[in-house]
């Protein structure tokens, strides 16, 4: 039934594309988080049962499976929990200087944020480094309202 393909011009393909877009609302918890972010504030949700804090906040604790109704502002700064250096862009071109992507966690809070780290020498990036956000002047209500993070001054 199967034949070895020898003449590649005989292979037929049909081309197509899928266009369109997706529009995502931020949800009940997300709306609150990003509204607060526009005010340069960070909020976490607090589970009434296990009393853990979650960031980004959510309306349920996935372990206790109960509704989260309490949201609290977090004034402390997060620390670098993990990091990676990017040397190439998405098109495989070498970057002039490496980009630093960090996973940030707050002490005693579940979850965290993935973001960019700047204003730092690569040698100085380390676990536990306390960082502060640099905000965009005019917030739009999305994660890029934080331009980047930098070591706490």
């Amino acid at each position: 039934m199967f034949e070895k393909i020898e003449k590649f011009d005989k292979i037929r393909v049909w081309k197509g594309e899928k266009t369109g877009w997706h529009r995502y609302t931020y949800g009940i918890a997300g709306e609150m988080f990003f509204r607060k972010l526009m005010e340069k504030k960070f909020v976490a949700g607090k589970c009434p049962e296990c009393e853990r804090l979650f960031i980004p906040p959510r309306i349920y604790c996935e372990d206790c499976f109960v509704e989260i109704k309490e949201f609290v502002e977090i004034k402390e700064l997060p620390r670098v929990y993990s990091f990676t250096f990017l040397f190439k862009d998405l098109e495989d071109n070498l970057l002039k200087e490496p980009e630093i992507v960090v996973f940030l966690k707050w002490d005693n809070i579940e979850g965290g944020l993935i973001h960019r780290l700047k204003e730092v020498n690569i040698e100085d990036v380390n676990f536990g480094l306390v960082v502060e956000p640099v905000f965009k002047e005019k917030p739009e209500g999305n994660i890029n309202d934080i331009l980047y993070w930098r070591p706490k001054k």
Binding site: Y24, T25, Y26, G27, I28, A29, G30, E31, R58, I59, Y60, F65, V66, E67
Partner: peptide
């Protein structure tokens, strides 16, 4: 037609009610 809730939030509300 358009819910504000994310898919996860919708799933939680229905699941919690069933429980």
């Amino acid at each position: 037609r358009r819910a504000q809730e994310t898919p996860k939030e919708l799933a939680f509300e229905a699941a919690k009610m069933a429980l």
